[in-house]
């Protein structure tokens, strides 16, 4: 896995879409792989929370026969936290403020998730 490539991709996500404040990539079992987060965010804790939340969401879609899990989004009064599965081995957390256009985020994310999955699974 190319750490620099991953860091570049994550930084680009934050720079391209207005409203994204932080991102983190973690393994499905909650171990942090890379973080592009501000000082006030505990990135390791965020990775663990995201993995737990995504696991629960995955069980929920399976138990209710809703197909494949696309994402899990939690909304607060000052923004949102979206967690996307990256292939079957990892997840991507995106934190946004009130201005983030979540519909646009979901529209633009499939190719980004593919690119991150490719970086993570690249043996070179």
């Amino acid at each position: 896995m190319d750490q620099k490539k991953l860091a570049d991709e994550m930084r680009q996500i934050r720079e391209e879409l207005a409203g994204i404040t932080d991102t983190a990539v973690a393994a499905v079992d909650g171990l942090l792989i890379a973080a592009d987060t501000g000082r006030r965010i505990d990135s390791e804790g965020l990775a663990a929370l995201a993995a737990a939340g995504l696991g629960l969401a995955q069980r929920t879609v399976a138990a209710t026969e809703r197909g494949e899990l696309r994402r899990m989004v939690t909304y607060g009064s000052q923004g949102c936290a979206a967690v996307y599965p990256v292939g079957e081995i990892a997840l991507l957390v995106v934190l946004g403020d009130e201005g983030l256009d979540v519909d646009l985020l979901h529209e633009e994310f499939p190719p980004i998730l593919d690119r991150i999955a490719a970086i993570l699974t690249d043996e070179a």
Binding site: M1, V25, A27, L31, L32, I33, D36, A90, L120
Partner: peptide, 16 residues
């Protein structure tokens, strides 16, 4: 900001 612990992440990813 600094990336995560790369040395930890690599074997973990391989296992996964």
């Amino acid at each position: 900001s600094g990336p995560g612990p790369a040395d930890l992440a690599e074997p973990l990813l391989r296992r996964l």
